[in-house]
Amino acid sequence: MRTISNLGLHPWGVIIVLLLWWQIILPVTVFARVTPEDIVNSKKEAYESRVVNYSAAHRQNLEIFSKKIVEVNKKRTDELDRIMVAQALILDEYETRLRQGSGGQGRRADEIEKARYWITYAHEAVAYQAAKIYIFDLSGESNITRDALNTISFFQSELNSARSKVINSQKILTDVVKLK
């Protein structure tokens, strides 16, 4: 404080100035959230700025390949989505039978709720995967095959992750419907 005073600044004045700066800076840091959309846009920009320098044949190959990834993702997530709808139907039917039968749904309520939770969780994961957009992270025209393979590996790991969630909810549902 002595040093600040020696400079001719009042300590409270310094605090107020710092507070004002904090007020200006903080909103920027708080609200500059990075959304998935921002990430996709920045990847798109990077891709477009690099692909311009590629040969026409390679550009076309990348475009066709990108469409194939979209097709595979759609085909597979549609299949997983249908499975999730079917799992939910089975659980509903199981619940209906319990209600109409011996009235044992009270005892099984926890198991049914658990299965419903994991079915919903897996269904959301599938919907999220269906909305994914894959953009090549290009490192150079000579590395085009490697870059494409990297994108495939990433896509495969994500699609398999959604699939494993579907299998997990299937196991939980099987355990529930086994209970008579």
Binding site: E79, R163, T174, V177
Partner: peptide, 21 residues
Amino acid sequence: LETETKNLTPDDFSGDFKVLR
């Protein structure tokens, strides 16, 4: 219901990725 649930196993996707590679 048990059999129906077991029949819902998703396909293996490795064939698609083999073609893409």
